[in-house]
């Protein structure tokens, strides 16, 4: 435990930066949008001098639920990535790479093209698809037998993801309007979100946060290796199962709301680890905050970049996430 004296000060700077990014991202997301008469003044107005004017109602009824949803999506995707990276002990694990996002996309697409197929709601279909894809990938990697092979995990995930997405892409060739609906949703569009959807996301994010906290110690033990975890009295298969369910549920619900947003689940836990180390009890809230900040920034950019037309948030998230991840990979190698 060296450096206990310097660590708090560094951490507090990181926390401060993170909170600043969160607030800045939140304001950026809330003050950008289609209407030129709704900006920072109205945001202040909503907080300090609420009235029933139209610009304020735009902020209250349209912008704020979207802003909160962007943050909550960041929380959900970040936590899903964190859980997957912990249980697989693989820094490359993320909902997109393990095929979970694509599985959710397939579930949702099926519910769109054959509405009465299972009687499940589109959201439930997305979670079911995510769960099925996750379990399939883990089965391919040998995870169900308690011995996960990293290489087979990634390869399995890529295969499952490619297969699921092939079927999603097939739907693009169907009826024009149906294809437009699916395409629109696959690029990640959250412009339709209002408070009811936000509440729904908030419940999931809160549940996800709680479950992640409960599992944090198990994740820490998992980091020592499956055998060591077992030796310390934590059955890795149970951690694996619970982690998968958690990640699939969080990724599934995010995908059903906003389409398959890639890279957030992959990058956010890495950024959090740089600032806060490897202890999952701290990483859980740190990842949640980092995910929220990143997605708020992405949402603001999505509305601002090519105004008056929106760039889908999924595209922006990938544009921020991909170079970040590349830089991360390269710089980690150099330091070794």
């Amino acid at each position: 435990m060296t450096g206990t004296k310097t660590r708090p000060s560094r951490k507090s700077i990181v926390i401060l930066l993170l909170l600043l990014a969160l607030i800045a991202g939140g304001i950026f997301s809330a003050i950008t949008g289609g209407r030129s008469d709704t900006g920072i003044t109205q945001l202040w107005g909503v907080i300090f001098t609420p009235d029933s004017s139209l610009p304020q109602s735009v902020l209250r009824d349209i912008r704020l639920p979207r802003t909160f949803s962007a943050a909550l999506l960041g929380v959900n995707l970040g936590l899903a990535g964190l859980a997957l990276q912990a249980i697989t002990r693989n820094p490359l694990a993320s909902p997109a790479i393990l095929g979970i996002n694509q599985g959710a996309a397939l579930g949702l697409t099926l519910s769109l093209i054959i509405p009465g197929l299972t009687g499940l709601s589109p959201d439930a279909m997305a979670v079911a698809g995510a769960m099925a894809a996750g379990v399939l990938t883990f089965a391919i990697a040998g995870g169900l037998r308690g011995k996960m092979d990293s290489m087979r995990l990634i390869l399995g995930g890529v295969a499952v993801g490619a297969f699921a997405y092939a079927i999603v892409r097939f739907s693009f060739t169907l009826d024009d309007e149906l294809a437009r609906s699916v395409v629109r949703w696959t690029v990640g569009d959250i412009g339709y979100i209002r408070w009811p959807q936000t509440r729904w996301l908030a419940i999931w994010a809160l549940a996800g946060l709680l479950c992640s906290f409960v599992l944090a110690q198990r994740f820490n033990l998992m980091a020592l290796g499956q055998a060591s975890a077992q030796g310390l009295g934590s059955d890795p298969r149970i951690t694996l199962l619970l982690g998968t369910i958690l990640a699939a549920a969080l990724a599934g619900i995010s995908v059903s709301v906003a389409g398959p947003i890639a890279f957030v689940g992959l990058v956010v836990p890495h950024i959090a680890r740089i600032g806060f180390g490897a202890d999952h009890r701290i990483l859980v809230p740190a990842t949640a905050l980092t995910g929220a900040a990143l997605m708020l920034l992405a949402d603001g950019l999505s509305k601002w970049l090519s105004a008056p037309v929106e760039t889908p948030i999924g595209v922006i998230a990938a544009l921020i996430g991909a170079p970040w991840f590349l830089w991360l990979t390269l710089s980690t190698k150099e330091s070794r």
């Binding site: 735009v58 349209i62 339709y192 929106e310």
Partner: peptide
């Protein structure tokens, strides 16, 4: 540049 422009309620109100 686009012939068919995806539009949110807020953009429509503008």
């Amino acid at each position: 540049e686009k012939t068919y422009v995806p539009t949110t309620l807020e953009q429509l109100s503008e």
